[in-house]
């Protein structure tokens, strides 16, 4: 799981052009969206859907799930573990 979280952080930095961030700057439990976390926005949410499809072949078809799945690195990693093919 730790390896997956580390890999996920690297993908996040590349896909979202988080130029000033390193994986160490992204806390596993910190919210990805909003001012208290990474400060991602709605366009980033679309990029995260593409990231799941591209790297883990997971299609997020239910938009209602997005909010809980993309809450933090922890929630994303758990979702990937459960749904990866």
């Amino acid at each position: 799981m730790d390896n997956l979280k580390e890999e996920l952080k690297k993908h996040l930095i590349t896909q979202l052009n988080l130029e000033d961030k390193t994986p160490a700057d992204i806390m596993d439990e910190a919210p990805l969206f909003g001012d208290n976390g990474l400060g991602l926005d709605s366009i980033d949410a679309l990029e995260l859907i593409v990231l799941l499809d591209k790297h883990y072949h997971i299609k997020l078809t239910n938009p209602e799930e997005g909010k809980s799945v993309f809450y933090s690195i922890n929630t994303m990693a758990e979702y990937i573990e459960k749904n990866k093919k």
């Binding site: 896909q15 366009i43 679309l46 990029e47 859907i49 593409v50 499809d53 591209k54 299609k59």
Partner: peptide, 13 residues
Amino acid sequence: TIEGGLLPPTSFI
């Protein structure tokens, strides 16, 4: 390169 998959939106926008 992403044949038939989802395309990242930012570069398109």
